[in-house]
Design a protein around this nucleic acid. Structure first.
Length: 523
DNA sequence: ATTAGGG
DNA sequence: CCCTAAT
């Protein structure tokens, strides 16, 4: 059987670095590149990935044949939160975590401590703790932690820190319901010293190149640029494996595929306001990454093939053959020959007790369908607009589409509600009714970022419909009749309530009209 | 930002 | 799921 992995999300990666580092202290970007490029990183066994079909977690020992019977089964893989054997995922994060820590200590920077490849030193105590948190998917909390560390160690006034938290909370909340339009895929904040308020302008002032050169990183200006990379995605993978293989070997194969991609054929690119930043020697300040108010939204990172070489030759495997598309990944090329398998191999796990604990990316694939006629894929190397750049990048931490007209939003990927989710939704609606989707969201899907209240409202709509039609006409994973019954009951109940409310209001209005026409309608 | 509905 | 008018 053949699996099509659409994407693999790496989770969150964070990194902090003084914004005034110069060409010789340009480790920031390089570190990211290196950690992604370190091909000889001890590859994980993949044992700490878990697989699931629909909502059912399948374990390593289970033969694929047994699970291949699922009709429209969707296989998903996700790194486990268990410590377990270190795999590439943790490798990546370990490295970043360490790097961040190092920043704390040598924030004065300058010394170019080139994090050599293969330098996968075991994470120290502190690092471990942080990593554990990362593994627990408390990404934003971790970020806060890191900042606290950064600031305290750098002996910077605490106001900045306080501000920071607020900033985080605020963003956290605003992001929650608008994954796409409102979401910021990374953060870039400039610290201010005196007032503790953020201000792009003031920040820009402090970071002006000429001045920055004189500034000491230790002074209160705390010229740090923090970048938060929500996730990197590996767009597409083709995996071929016999049905007699075990789930464990499947995982291993997937792990190998992912590792191969991350193992040394990628480089990180920086995109600012839609343009690829080519000059690595410029400082962040010079580039303008720290200026202005809105530019915060204009920074993005890309993973690109390191060279235009044919990548297919890079992954020679014997028994479980692994096929990977070459640079033209994202789209077309492969005709929809295997559409059935392609559907969602790498959809979100959403397994068992999903609901409320999976940190996921909101948007489907980073592989923009803005593609289509992708002709020269391995050509453009120069400064190119993102649109064109997307065609050859493996993954893109979505860059904020600024220009209202140019970029077109991508349709979100389909994420069928699991029975568990339906259960949660029903329970919430039974309690809150059908007119408070925002509350429903907060109550039952608060931590599930890809389900907006609009989604929940829509799902309820379809649930009501589903409950009304015959079981034969229903599609998708069958929803227990018991739940559908509750849907109808709740729907009936709250419809009545709503009707009553309407009547009351009508009465009030009429009353006032009859007796005191001049008063306001609502009192 | 939310709600409510049609597409 | 998306798109929007109306709050």
């Amino acid at each position: 059987m053949r699996y099509f992995a659409e994407k693999v999300t790496l989770g969150s990666v964070e990194h902090g670095k003084p914004s005034n580092y110069n060409s010789e202290d340009e480790t920031k970007r390089k570190n990211v590149v290196e950690l992604l490029n370190s091909g000889n990183a001890p590859h994980g066994t993949g044992a700490n990935m878990y697989s699931a079909i629909g909502d059912q977690v399948v374990w390593d020992a289970k033969p694929l044949v047994q699970i291949s019977s699922y009709s429209n089964a969707k296989m998903s893989f996700k790194e486990t939160e268990e410590p377990g054997p270190r795999n590439l995922f943790s490798q990546v994060r370990d490295n970043v975590a360490l790097d961040s820590k190092d920043d704390d200590e040598n924030s004065s920077g300058c010394t170019h401590r080139s994090t050599t490849k293969n330098s996968f030193k075991p994470a120290p105590c502190m690092g471990d703790r942080r990593i554990r948190k990362v593994l627990a998917s408390k990404y934003w909390k971790v970020a806060t932690k890191w900042k606290e560390k950064l600031f305290s160690r750098n002996d910077v006034d605490l106001k900045a820190d306080g501000f920071d938290k607020k900033s985080f909370y605020k963003r956290q909340r605003s992001q929650r319901n608008f994954p796409f339009k409102k979401r910021k895929f990374f953060d870039l904040n400039c610290e201010s010293n005196s007032d503790g308020e953020i201000s792009g302008d003031s920040c820009a002032d402090r970071e002006m190149p000429s001045v920055a050169g004189q500034h000491s990183p230790y002074q209160s200006a705390n010229p740090h640029v923090r970048v938060r990379i929500e996730s990197f995605r590996v767009p597409e993978l083709f995996i071929e494996i016999p049905e007699t293989a075990t789930v464990g070997s499947l995982k291993r194969t997937v792990m190998e595929a992912v590792t191969a991609i991350l193992g040394g054929e990628l480089r990180v690119g920086v995109v600012l306001q839609g343009k690829k930043v080519g000059d690595d020697s410029k400082t962040l300040a010079q580039t303008g990454i720290c200026h202005g108010n809105n530019q915060v939204d204009a920074l993005g990172f890309t993973l690109e093939p390191n060279s235009s070489q044919d990548l297919r030759s890079a992954t020679p495997r014997s028994s479980p053959s692994l096929v990977r598309r070459n640079t033209s990944y994202p789209h077309s090329r492969y005709p929809p020959a295997r559409t059935e398998a392609r559907e969602g191999i790498f959809d979100e796990p959403q397994a068992v007790n999903n609901l409320g604990n999976s940190a996921e990316s909101d948007r489907g694939s980073a592989t923009s369908p803005t593609d289509l006629s992708n002709k020269g894929l391995a050509d453009s190397k120069a400064l190119v607009p993102v649109s064109a750049l997307n065609r050859e990048t493996l993954a893109v931490v979505p860059v904020r589409r600024k220009s209202k007209h140019s970029e077109i939003a991508q349709r979100r990927i389909r994420r069928p509600f699991s029975v568990a989710e339906v259960e949660a939704l029903v329970q919430a609606v039974e309690k809150l009714g059908t007119g408070r989707w925002r509350d429903v969201k907060l109550r039952a899907f608060d931590s599930v970022k890809h389900r907006t209240y609009v989604d929940l409202k829509d799902k309820w709509k379809t649930l009501v419909h589903t409950a009304r039609i015959s079981p034969q006409q229903r599609r998708g994973e069958p929803v227990p009749q018991e739940l559908l019954d509750r849907v109808l009951t709740a729907h009936a109940y709250w419809s009545q309530q709503q009707a009553k409310q309407q009547l009351k209001h009508h009465h009030r209005r009429h009353h006032h009209h009859h007796h005191q026409p001049e008063t306001r309608l609502l009192l």
